[in-house]
Each structure stands twice: as structure tokens, then as C-alpha cells.
Amino acid sequence: MANIIEVTDLSYHYPQMEQRPALQHVNFTVQAGEWLAIIGHNGSGKSTLAKSLDGLLTPDPQNKGEIKVAGLTLTDETVWQIRAKIGMVFQNPDNQFVGATVEDDVAFGLENRGVPRPEMQERVHAALKRVRMTEFADREPARLSGGQKQRVAIAGIIAQRPDIIILDESTSMLDPKGRAEVLATVRQLNQEDHLTVISITHDIDEAAQANRIVVLDDGQVKETGTPAEIFAYGERLIEMGLDVPYAERLKTALRQVGADVPKQYLTEEGMADWLWTSHSKM
């Protein structure tokens, strides 16, 4: 498959922190239609990377690298074209809700791009239907849960019909139910509309949805691999910035007492299934 994003030799320094670069010579590619997770502990440069892809940071004069999105090299001239191709969902559900009501918020991006009103109404309704928020169309954000607000943010992105959706720790402030709703919506977009997904996360369940995982540490790419390959690191996942799930901790403990546990990543249910079938003779 073709690469939709190509990042070569990207470095970034925040103006006040000359000595400690946020990103150092980062190289990676994202294929069209894939789901890529970026993990890393706090301060590893994950969010800086996400914002760089969308041209949301003031360019770093020392940066020699380049970012290519859908064949366009990111420059001052192309930044708005590139932003039209990328939809971003940020961490705090409240701080990205611009409109006074749900439908206003979904329409905001379309208004910005000068979409004519009849088309705008159509796209807003279709997008809200897609995230199952139609009956909330005239609600104010104060009367929505965090997960609902994030789904509205996703509807705002769907309405703009981008090629790529970036989740910048979008589920980290949600309760488990909200998180599951948001991830289900994104999975649907990835599978049915072949939207490329880049998710920046601490959440192992979110990372497990990905086709590939990139591990960032100190602004550098440490590892790239499938979830099964990355999760095989077990204990070291904590250093990488993931919250290790119960099933993985159990596996490590079992291995220490000499049990022969499977190497690949297991969900909690998978682990339970393995446990109750491991001694079964049938």
C-alpha cells in the first residue's frame, strides 16, 4: 500500500528549551488505511509529533527534515491543504468544543472552509448519524458526557472528509464506557471508510487495535512493530509508557513460576480462555 505520511529526519526544539530537543531525527511512514499507534512515556515527544504532522507548531529553524502528507510537503503554503486532509481529536473534550451546540460544533470546520449552507446541513447530519449523536444535535456541550463530546469532535472530522484522523490522547480523559464508544467509532471509520488512523496513547487496549506501533522515547523512535511484537516486551512496556494490563502482568507472574504461557498478547478474556483450556484434555 502507498505511504500517506512520510516523515524524514524530523527534529523539533521548543523555543525555551534549546538543549533538550522534543524530537530528534524522527523517521517513520504511515500507510494509507492503516492504524498506527504511537506510544511513549510523558515527555517522549508524542504530542509534539502529532502537532508537527498538522503544522500546528511554529517551524523549528534547526529542523532539516520534512513531512510529506498525501504527496504534499508541509510548508507555509501547503499547511491549510494538509490540515484539510487531517482531522485531529485532542485530549480534553471541553477545550476543542467550539460551537455552542453539537451541530454548530460539527459545522465549524465546514464554515471555515466556506462550504455552502445546503451541503453543510447534509454533511453535518450525515456525520452526526455516523457517530450516533443525531438526537443530541441541539444539545449544549455542558449537557454531554466526555465520550459524547469526543464523538462530536469525530463527527466534526467526518464532516470534513479527511484522509487521516489523529487521536492525540483522545481517550485519556474518558471513563471506560466513553473510551470504548470512541474507539468503536474510530474502528468503524478505519474499517469501513479506510481512514488512516494515528493514535497517540497510553492505553494498551487502544494500542492493541493498531496494525503497527511506534515507540517514542526522548524524541526518538525506539521500536516499530506489530502489537504482538511490542507487547512481548512485557514489563518493559511500562518504561515505554503503556499501562500494562492485568492479563500481561499475570502472564509474567506465571512465567516466573515456570508455567508455559503463550508469547503473544492476550486480552483478559483470551487469558481466561487460555487458563481454563490449558489443562483441558478434551
Binding site: K51, D54, L56, W80, R83, A84, I86, G87, M88, F90, N92, N95, Q96, V98, F108, G109, N112, R113, G156, Q160
Partner: peptide, 12 residues
């Protein structure tokens, strides 16, 4: 945050 989100959504 809001300014960043608005810019990401094409506000000019």
C-alpha cells in the same frame, strides 16, 4: 488548547 483545535479545523 481551543486555539490549536480551531486552527486544526481550518479556522483562518
Amino acid at each position: 488548547d481551543l486555539a490549536t483545535a480551531m486552527e486544526a479545523r481550518g479556522y483562518q
